[in-house]
Amino acid sequence: MSSTPKVWFITGASSGFGRCMTEYILSRGEIAVATLRGDPSILSSLTSKYPTNQLLILKLDVTDPLSISSAFNSAKETFGRIDVVFNNAGYAIIGEIEGTDEKLAQDLFECNFWGSSRVSKEAIKIFREVNNPVGGRLLINSSISGLNPVPGLGYYGASKFAVEGFTQALASELNPDWNIKVTLIEPGMFSTKAIGQNAIYIPTLHPSPCTSINITRERLHQASLGKIEGVGSPMKAVQGFYDLANLDEPPLRFVIGKDAIKRARMQLETLERDIKVLEAWSEDLADE
């Protein structure tokens, strides 16, 4: 157990990485502010095990700015500070881009991008203006699809690309004296509800079992059921997230999972190849 417990603020704590992160930090003697959009009774097994001075459960809908500020204020009033924010809430749409209703895609962005960006900004404000000493750790749960998208996850990948761009810019704007460390977590395939019952599955326009989209769909479904060998355990992953938050100088990006590392390297190789092919075209472009 920690000699001085850290206060963790977790979004999307009802299942998946958020639930596992909540359970793990509580087991380490830390303090958890577990937030979720749904019924707080989902976490009743934790409330019966941990005292109120170690676990605070709050309703939070990341699509509602007032809900976000209210939850952060409640955490601040209860514990006086927040040391780590695990910005995790989000979901996936699985289906072809052409077959996805635009309103569904907009709702996805409202949660995955706008919700995430609002939580990040609120976290920075607490770290800078409330914590004494100043500082904090912001962990944003992105996805390897935010670097290397796959067929069938186009809008999901696009929402995570937006998170990646926003977060990298945000991190570059922070004064080093604030001692705020930001890391994008980019998991590969893990057995969570994010790719199972919490995802929205769109019927395919081209329902052949040989299409890449249907292959993605079936693989994600089987992974969510734990039926694919080598799919990561979210509980093992959050142990890495916990250690990440305790690094003095954490990286901006943390790619986790062998499949994620492979896809990240593929993306780097593709980018490098594309640059080299037409690199000469950038010569002599200065105005005369």
Rank of each mutant, 00 (worst) to 15 (best):
V277H: 03
L285C: 14
L36E: 03
K6P: 03
T47S: 06
T78Y: 01
A34W: 05
N132M: 14
D274W: 09
E218S: 09
I68A: 01
A280K: 14
E102Y: 15
L174N: 05
K276H: 13
C111G: 08
K59L: 13
L220Q: 02
Y155C: 02
V150N: 09
A280C: 11
P207V: 06
R128A: 12
R81T: 03
Y201G: 04
S143E: 10
P5A: 00
V231M: 09
G257L: 10
S282R: 10
L46K: 07
K193P: 13
E173Y: 11
M21G: 02
T22D: 00
R81F: 03
S159N: 03
N198Y: 11
A32W: 01
G165P: 10
I124V: 14
L184V: 05
Q106G: 07
Q197N: 14
E279D: 14
E77Y: 00
N148Y: 15
K227G: 02
A34N: 04
L170D: 10
L153I: 07
D243V: 05
F190W: 14
S2P: 09
N53S: 09
S142R: 04
G90D: 06
L46W: 08
I275A: 09
D248Q: 02
K262R: 14
D64P: 15
R263G: 13
L26I: 11
I10P: 02
N112P: 08
T78P: 04
S45F: 13
R128K: 12
I42G: 14
Q197W: 05
F127T: 04
I185S: 00
N179Y: 07
Q168G: 08
Q106E: 12
G154Q: 05
E77S: 05
E96H: 06
G157V: 00
H221K: 11
I31W: 11
S224H: 13
I140Y: 04
F166Q: 11
G12S: 05
G188P: 10
S172F: 02
P133D: 03
L56V: 01
V119M: 01
S282W: 05
K258I: 00
K49Q: 12
R118H: 13
S224P: 10
I185L: 10
Y201W: 08
N73F: 04
A92K: 01
F161M: 12
I82P: 01
D243L: 03
F254S: 01
W114T: 08
K227H: 07
N179S: 09
R118L: 09
